[in-house]
Amino acid sequence: MRRATLAPRLAAGLGLLGLLATAAGCGTTASGGSGGDPVTLHLGYFPNLTHAPAIVGVSRGLLARALGSRVTLRTTTFNAGPAAIQALLGGSLDATYVGPNPAINGFIASHGGALRIVSGATAGGAELVVQPDEGITSAADLKGKKVATPQLGNTQDVALRSWLAARGLHTDPQTGGDVRISPTDNSTTVQLFKQHQIDAAWVPEPYAATLVDTAHGRVLVDEATLWPGGRFPTTELVVATSFLNAHADVVRGLVQGNLDAIGFINADPAQARAAVNDALLQLTQKKLDTTVLDDAWAHLVFSPDPIAGALQTEVRSAHDAGLLASTDIKGIFDLHALDAVLQAAGQPAVGDAGLGS
């Protein structure tokens, strides 16, 4: 087992929210409604524990119930955020669960027109894991080494580049730099790590726990230690602006379903872990080992708060890494639907750090 995590302290205030959100979801009519023309909502998410609200929401029907009978929910899974955002920008997705950096990339690439973050979902759950027998104890020891991330420009990729830069190591998306960063599918990363073909990986859960518990990896950096209070967003709920403008009621239903899923997770974590693992079996044909599941879960906090203030840091990090041409993300949040469903659950609104539309 790994060292104690910051997640229990972060989760301490979420129990009441979980109970209220679950009660609100069970006691209200579907926010999407049953009247009006039929609508199909195309939703993306990842088969990762960091997307547990999506996995639970889909597998237990919480999203479909909140959306209402006139909304048909179609889902697609992705390995990492840039591919999901590309699908949203291309029009094949209406909404997706995704990390903050791909959301930022899509917002800037579309000059602020294509998408809005409408809710948070998950915080925490990303670590830099290194081979146990290569003497890697600091950033300096990674010079000349090969380090995997899920995809160029995804949230963990940016976090790694920022952490290295702060310690005097240069990386370049084109030429490599001091550290060879290798964007790699998460499942492939696990195999390469076990074969000692990579030296380290900055990955989300459950892959970080898998590297530690099944491949004897050692955590060099728990990303939670790099943020004030250990709070950083890992998964946000993003909606295409065109869909939001055309179907605001459906988006409110989606946000309600997300809140219901988070409520279910926080009200009964053991049942939630089992539900997520069963769903992962359907999605990936493989369940997580119980030790890996429990270890990974301890690093995650599930909350609708998008931790908006952190995005200013995220965008500066991506810009400094040469992955963004601009740092202007004013208008990236539209939290009107979230504030409405939180108010209905007796909870205060969350802040948008001045980045609301």
Rank of each mutant, 00 (worst) to 15 (best):
R2A: 14
R2V: 12
T5G: 05
A7C: 06
L10M: 15
L10V: 15
L10N: 15
L16C: 13
G27C: 11
D37H: 10
V39R: 12
T40L: 00
F46R: 15
P47N: 02
P47I: 00
L49T: 03
T50P: 09
T50S: 11
P53D: 00
A54P: 05
G57Y: 09
G61D: 13
S69A: 11
R70G: 05
R70V: 03
T75D: 09
T76K: 15
N79Y: 10
I85Y: 02
I85H: 02
L89H: 00
G91Q: 09
Y97A: 13
V98I: 09
P100R: 05
A103G: 05
I104D: 01
S110G: 04
G112D: 02
G113S: 14
I117A: 12
I117E: 12
V118S: 11
T122K: 11
V129C: 00
V130W: 02
P132H: 01
T137Q: 09
S138I: 08
L142T: 04
V147K: 01
T149R: 04
N154E: 15
T155G: 06
Q156I: 04
D157M: 01
V158E: 13
V158S: 07
A165I: 03
A166T: 04
R167W: 08
G168S: 08
L169I: 03
L169D: 08
D178K: 01
V179L: 04
N186M: 13
N186D: 11
S187Y: 13
P204G: 12
Y207D: 05
V212E: 06
V219P: 10
W227I: 05
P228Q: 08
G230H: 11
E236P: 09
A240K: 10
S242M: 15
N245K: 15
A246E: 09
A248R: 13
V250W: 01
V251F: 07
R252L: 08
G253V: 03
V255H: 07
A261G: 03
I262L: 08
A267I: 04
D268P: 00
Q271R: 13
A272K: 01
N277F: 01
D278Q: 14
L281W: 14
T284D: 07
K286W: 02
K287P: 09
T290L: 11
L293K: 02
A296E: 10
F302I: 11
D305A: 12
A308Q: 06
L311Q: 07
Q312N: 12
V315Y: 09
H319W: 10
G322P: 02
L324C: 03
A325E: 14
S326D: 15
D328T: 06
I329W: 05
L342T: 09
Q343H: 15
A344K: 14
A345S: 14
V350W: 05
D352K: 10
D352M: 06
A353S: 07
